[in-house]
């Protein structure tokens, strides 16, 4: 469980950046949504299970709610850590465990996703947003972590 301890605030100084990102209602959708792949058709598939299959679509349907479309996280009274360039993603088991079981402000998402979906979104995050981890998480890895 020691890997959990270092997963805290790494987003100091983001406030100014985020202030620049203000989007008023009625203006254009956020760019990250314009490029949603299967997100639109698979959205709201079921109250119990996400319908998206590929990593990008899953990220856009779930993760960016807190970690934001650019994966740079956000800070209010507490902080959602940046996933962009996050060294905690190096050990693949860490993000798998976080997605499945949650921790602190991160709710468990595992009950809403099958093993393939967890693997897809973890692989997506570990290979995007400035992360370049080439080892791949498999559904079997996820199953073992449940």
């Amino acid at each position: 469980m020691t890997i959990f301890k270092s997963f805290t605030v790494k987003a100091a100084g983001l406030t100014a950046l985020l202030t620049a990102l203000h989007v008023a209602v009625g203006v254009l959708p956020h760019p990250a949504h314009a490029q949603a792949s299967d997100a639109s058709s698979a959205a709201f598939a079921s109250p119990r299970h996400f319908g998206q299959k590929d990593g990008a679509a899953l990220y856009q349907a779930i993760c960016q709610g807190c970690h934001m479309p650019d994966a740079k996280g956000a800070t209010g009274a507490g902080t959602y850590p940046a996933l962009a360039g996050n060294p905690n993603l190096e050990a693949a088991g860490y993000p798998v465990a976080m997605v499945v079981h949650g921790q602190k402000a991160m709710p468990p998402i595992g009950e809403f996703l099958d093993d393939d979906q967890v693997a897809a979104v973890v692989n997506y995050v570990r290979t995007h947003f400035g992360n370049h981890y080439t080892d791949t998480v498999t559904a079997a890895d996820v199953k073992a972590a449940r």
Partner: peptide
């Protein structure tokens, strides 16, 4: 609540 709420939250407010 639940999965639908997460999807709503991940969208910009206008969406």
């Amino acid at each position: 609540f639940g999965a639908y709420a997460m999807e709503y939250t991940a969208m910009p407010p206008e969406e």
